[in-house]
């Protein structure tokens, strides 16, 4: 179900540690112990975060028993980032047009004022 997937993604991303883990994974795939290092966290604590990210479809993990590299699954995250980007762009484009419109309007007024 669409809403459930969406909620899971949002919930997974709402946590700063999990976002930092994703940012690390954006640089390339790595192991759980590598991921744990910067956070002063136990392996199990990191694993818990990874499970949440995996359920949300934000990361995928290798199958090899010992070395289970984590990697980023880009598409859900890209969707989230793109709304903010789209919204900003929408307004910026509108404001460019407003700028032009106001300039045209004032030019017209000045021409009219000169004729008087």
């Amino acid at each position: 179900m669409v809403t459930d997937t969406l909620s899971t993604t949002f919930a997974a991303l709402a946590d700063p540690t999990r976002r930092a883990i994703l940012a690390r994974l954006a640089l390339g795939e790595t192991t759980v112990s590598e991921l744990a290092k910067p956070f002063k966290m136990s392996g199990p604590a990191v694993s818990k975060h990874l499970k949440v990210l995996e359920r949300a479809g934000l990361i995928a993990r290798g199958r090899e028993a010992q070395w289970r590299p984590c990697r980023l699954e880009a598409s859900p995250l890209r969707d989230v980032a793109s709304w903010v980007e789209h919204y900003r762009r929408f307004w910026e484009h509108s404001f460019d047009r407003l700028d032009d419109y106001l300039a045209r309007l004032q030019a017209k007024e000045r021409r009219r004022a000169r004729k008087k």
């Binding site: 949002f10 991303l13 976002r19």
Partner: peptide, 24 residues
């Protein structure tokens, strides 16, 4: 969840949590 996410997107845009999010 949507609200939290929206908030965190803006927080990260402002502070880039150490610039990493922008890179991401």
């Amino acid at each position: 969840e949507e609200r939290k996410m929206f908030a965190s997107m803006h927080e990260s845009m402002r502070q880039g949590f150490g610039g990493t999010f922008d890179k991401l």
